[in-house]
């Protein structure tokens, strides 16, 4: 069986009309930790083929409780490890890795206007706020999904989806802080799945 026919079958169970839209989308993932690595995994399985991903860090053992990495990848830059893991799902993806610390001074250099969808997947609250200010001011036409509040062991239904504006969706319980409450795979991955789904829905709305 050649690669093309494998890929045809890969999306055979997708709901009608979804695959074509996601195949055309260009997505940026800011941060490849608990949110970003799992969002990327979900997007690729849903049909997104063009993903740019940024993270300055390397995989460490304490990431493996919730992030889409493996023991053998400890010490490897997260963007490189994630790219390898995504290509293991589908070797024909268009993936662009950026091993950089994103900050207000370089957001506009790396997050161009040509992206259809940007995911805020940082772990640091100040960085989340910085990227949100940039997106709300400079990238108003781009779909933007951010997360605030995914830590601890509170009920998963406390994670809300708030449509703050036409293109800005905020996911999270708004209060649980990872520094105080820890991070558990089930809740972090639930939040990342909700985040990915919100982005997918927004892309389908536009199609």
């Amino acid at each position: 069986m050649n690669t093309e026919s494998v890929l045809e079958n890969m999306f055979a169970a997708n709901p009608d009309g979804v695959t074509e839209t996601l195949n055309r989308a260009s997505v940026f993932i800011a941060g490849c930790g608990g949110l970003g690595s799992n969002v990327a995994n979900i997007l690729v399985r849903a049909g997104v083929r063009n993903i740019s991903m940024a993270d300055f860090d390397v995989v460490c053992a304490s990431n493996l409780n919730r992030q889409f990495f493996f023991k053998a990848q400890i010490g490897v830059p997260k963007v490189k490890a994630l790219k390898d893991n995504l290509l293991a799902i589908d070797p024909d993806l268009q993936l662009y890795e950026l091993q950089k610390r994103l900050c207000p001074e370089n957001f506009s250099d790396y997050i161009g206007r040509d992206f259809d969808l940007v995911f805020e997947c940082f772990d640091n609250a100040a960085s989340k706020a910085e990227l949100t200010r940039f997106m709300l001011r400079e990238r108003r036409d781009t779909i933007y999904v951010a997360v605030s509040g995914l830590a601890g062991i509170a009920p998963v239904e406390n994670i809300r989806v708030i449509r703050r504006s036409k293109n800005f969706i905020l996911v999270g319980d708004g209060g649980s802080d990872a520094d105080e409450s820890g991070t558990l795979a089930s809740r972090v991955i639930a939040a990342s799945a909700i985040q990915a789904h919100c982005g997918i829905m927004a892309l389908l709305e536009r199609a």
Partner: peptide, 8 residues
């Protein structure tokens, strides 16, 4: 006002 908390 939108206050972000850490975690990702």
């Amino acid at each position: 006002l939108m206050t972000f908390v850490g975690g990702g």
